[in-house]
Amino acid sequence: MKRQIPLVLVFIFGVLLAIQYFIPSEPSQKGYEFVLDWITIIGIFAMVLGIWSQIHVGYYKIRHRAEDWKYSVVTMVSMFGMIFLGLSPFGGLQGTTFRLIYTNIFIPIQATIFALLAFYIASASYRAFRARSAVSTVLLVAALLLMLRVIPMGPLADPINKIGSWMLLVPNLAAKRAILIGVGLGGVATALKIVLGIERSYLGKD
């Protein structure tokens, strides 16, 4: 009961949706739209679980005065503050305070976190691009060439640009295809294993 019904459900919906792809007729299209809709609606209920999880973790930390519990207070307060502002009938998503917080607090932090990548990409290149072996030398040279494209190099600029574009165009395409073919196969294999119930590690034993 605990294990058989889920497996049956997985099988039924898996097979139905896999077959649906080949059937263009109207009922089949309708069914497809319905199922996509259903997933969204189930997502609403899952969101309740998400909120619950967050409150649970935060409450536990605050209650037990765990390390850094004060920051959990910050998270809880800002979360409930946003929810209060965003759900209040006076403004919702378009409310002034709601928008002010979003554009003046949320967006600057977001852009700054993204900008951390500038530093990280530098430290990662410094650490990893070393000519340790033939393979890592290839990685290094390719990266260097592409970085050189940005720098005005006078007469060298054109050949570097061409080689760089060629690398982005040709070997890139070959590698991307090889990876995608593998991904396609792997994805189908994973889906098939799940639909057929061969892979059931995600469901456990009992």
């Binding site: 993204f114 390719a142 970085m147 070997p171 590698a175 090889a178």
Partner: peptide, 30 residues
């Protein structure tokens, strides 16, 4: 095969540096 993959990865990495620096420029300009 690995060589081709590495050329691609190196090239994509090198190509991305620019975009990331731009993000930093945005913040420093701010």
């Amino acid at each position: 095969g690995i060589w081709i993959l590495m050329i691609t990865f190196g090239a994509s990495f090198g190509y991305t540096v620019m975009g990331r620096i731009s993000l930093l420029v945005g913040r420093i300009t701010f």
